[in-house]
Design a protein around this nucleic acid. Structure first.
Lengths: 323, 323
DNA sequence: CTGAAAGCGCTAACAG
DNA sequence: CTGTTAGCGCTTTCAG
C-alpha cells in the first residue's frame, strides 16, 4: 500500500533504483526522457522521497536548529516565520528555551545530533558557555556577537541616532535612557548608541535602570521616570515601552502629550497599541536570509564572518513635541 | 575521528553491536554488568546514538509535526511552548502556514514523511481538504472538530455564558456580537454560545460582521458598532477586541466608560493593553498535554476520541457598568 | 548514461 | 542473555 519507494518506481519502469535516485538528486546525470518518465510515474504513484533514508545515506540531516530564548516574546514569531521561509526545503527544528538561559546548553546538545547547523538566538548566556555548548556544530549567532562564532546582527545604532535627531527636532532636551538587561549584547549596543548620540548635543541624558526587558520592567521604569523631568524616554524594546506607557498613565502622564516614548523592535504590539509606538524596525526577512546563508557557509567548513544589517526608525504616535 | 558508533563500543568491549544497541533501547534484555560497562564506555567515548539511523531502522521518526496557521498570531506561541514542553524528548517540528490556508495541504504532505504524527491547528481549511491531506498519518486536530479525526478543543461556551452573566449584572441589555470568520469552527462555536446565552434573557442581541480575526477586522467592526446603541461588544478574539477599542477611541468612545468590550483567548496583548481586556482563557498546558496524549493513542492505531476542555472567563478592565 | 554492489548506523527477529 | 543475519530507503563509487 502506501509505501512508494524508488524501487516501486524502478520496477514500474524497468530501470534500476539508482537511476531513479539520480533522477531526483542529480538530474543532469540522467537522460532527459528517462528522467521525464521517472518524474511522471513518481508523481502518479505519489512518491515521497524518504528523507530519513536519504539523511542516513548522505550523513547530512537536511535540518537546521533554531533556538530562541522565549517564543512568547513577540519579537521572535515573525523572525521564526522568515527563517522558515528562507530555509527552503530544509526543515527547521524550533526549540524554545522557555526563558531559562541555564537550560540552553542541554537543549543545544540535544539539537546538535539532529541538525546540520544551528541558528542561535541566545541573548543572555555567557559567551564561553555558548562556545562550549555548540562544540564543533556549525552555528550562527543571532543579534549578538561572540568571538570566534559567525553572527548576523541588526545594528540599531544609526536608527537610534535618527530617533535621537527626531526627538531633538521636536524640542526634547532632557532625555531618559531606560537600560535593558546587563550582559545583553543588544542592550549594550542600544545604550551605547544613545550615549554616543547624546554626546555631542546640548541635551541632558538621564540614565535609569537596568530594567528587565518586559512589560513589568517597563512599569518599574515608569516609576523612576516619573521622578525625573525627562520629556522623552528610550525604552529597551517595545514591550518595555508598553509597560512604561501604562505606568505613566497610572501616574497621570499621557503619551505623547506629557512624555514621549521610543520603543525598539517594532513588534505587533507597537502597531496596535494606543498610541502606536515610534520604534526601530528590524529587517527580519533579510536577517533570516543572511543567517541561513551564513549558516550554509559555516556548514561547508569555511570561516563565516559577522554580518551587520541596519535597523530603521519608524515615527508613529508615541513621540510628539516636548511639553 | 568523532564517529562513535555502537560498533566502536562493541569492539572496545569485545561484545556484539546488537548488545550495545540493546543496552540502550531494551536495557532489561542485557545482563546488568554488561549494560553497565556499555554505558560507561559510551559515556567515555562520548557516544551519541544516531537518531537518523534509529529512525530508518524502526520506521518511527520520534518527531511530531505541529502545523499552525499563523505563528505571528499571539495565540500560538504560548501553545507552541506548551506543546514542546509536553512532548518530552520527541522533537517537535513546527511549520507555519504563514496565514495561507491554501498552502496547508502541501505543507502537510511534506511533514508527513518526517513525523510519526501531526498536531493540526488549521481553523480555515475545509474538512475534506484536511482529511485528504493527512491521509493515513495519525493526526489530532486542535481547536476544531472534524468528522473522523481525533481532536482536542477548548470549549468557550460556558465561559462565554459566564461572561454574558457578568455584563448582564453590570446592567448591559443591548449586546453586540461581532462575528469571526465564517467557516471557522471556533467562530461558529463562540457565536452559538452567545446566541444561546442571549436566548433566554431580556437582552437585545445585535449581530454584526463577520469580520476578519485581526486588528484591522476589529477597526472595521468598531465602525459598525458606532452606528448601533449596543453598550457592550463581544469580539471574536483579543486582537480583534484591540482593534475595536482603537476604533471606538477614534470615534470618541471610551472603554469601558462608554462601551464595554469582551475579548477571547487571553493573549499577551490582553494583559498589556490599556484598558486590560476582559477575556476568556484557554488552558494551554492541559490542551497541549491532552493533544499529545491523544496523538500517542492515535499513533498506536487505536481510535482516539475528541476531547473538550473548558475556557475560563477573566474579568479585567474592559468591562464596566452600562453607560 | 545506467546497472551493480556496498554501505550509512541502528534495530529486530531468530537462533543458540 | 547474546551473537547472527537481514534489512530500513537512499546515495554513491565503480564498472560497463
Amino acid at each position: 500500500m502506501g509505501k512508494v519507494t524508488i524501487y516501486s518506481i524502478a520496477e514500474e519502469l524497468g530501470v534500476h533504483a539508482a537511476t531513479v535516485s539520480r533522477a531526483f538528486s542529480r538530474p543532469e546525470l540522467v537522460k532527459a526522457d528517462v528522467r521525464q518518465r521517472v518524474l511522471e510515474t513518481a508523481e502518479r504513484l505519489g512518491f515521497q522521497p524518504n528523507r530519513i533514508a536519504r539523511r542516513l545515506a548522505t550523513g547530512s540531516t537536511g535540518a537546521v536548529g533554531l533556538l530562541v530564548p522565549d517564543i512568547t516574546n513577540p519579537f521572535f514569531p515573525p523572525l521564526v516565520r522568515e527563517i522558515q521561509a528562507a530555509a527552503d526545503d530544509a526543515t527547521v527544528i524550533l526549540v524554545d528555551a522557555q526563558g531559562d538561559a541555564a537550560d540552553e546548553p542541554s537543549l543545544i546538545a540535544r539539537l546538535r545530533s539532529q541538525v546540520d547547523g544551528i541558528l542561535l538566538a541566545s541573548p543572555l548566556a555567557p559567551d564561553d558557555i555558548l562556545r562550549e555548548a555548540i562544540g564543533t556544530t556549525p552555528t550562527v549567532v543571532l543579534n549578538r556577537e561572540v568571538d570566534g562564532l559567525a553572527s548576523v546582527v541588526c545594528d540599531m545604532t544609526s536608527a537610534l541616532h535618527v530617533a535621537g535627531d527626531h526627538v531633538y527636532s521636536l524640542g526634547h532636551r532632557r532625555i531618559a535612557l531606560l537600560s535593558g538587561t546587563v550582559g545583553s549584547w543588544a542592550a549594550e549596543q542600544r545604550r551605547t548608541a544613545i550615549r554616543t548620540w547624546a554626546g555631542g548635543k546640548d541635551v541632558e541624558l538621564v540614565e535609569l535602570g537596568p530594567f528587565s526587558a518586559s512589560y513589568d520592567g517597563g512599569r518599574d521604569a515608569a516609576q523612576e521616570l516619573l521622578a525625573t523631568d525627562a520629556t522623552v524616554a528610550f525604552a529597551f524594546d517595545d514591550l518595555t515601552a508598553c509597560g512604561v506607557i501604562a505606568g505613566l498613565a497610572e501616574g497621570g502622564r499621557r503619551v505623547p502629550d506629557d512624555v514621549s516614548v521610543v520603543g525598539c523592535d517594532d513588534v505587533l504590539l507597537a502597531r496596535v497599541l494606543t498610541p502606536t509606538l515610534s520604534t526601530v524596525q528590524t529587517p527580519n526577512a533579510e536577517l533570516a536570509r543572511a543567517a541561513l546563508e551564513t549558516l550554509r557557509v559555516a556548514i561547508t567548513g569555511e570561516p563565516a564572518g559577522p554580518t551587520r544589517l541596519e535597523g530603521t526608525f519608524v515615527h508613529r504616535q508615541s513621540t510628539g513635541p516636548a511639553a
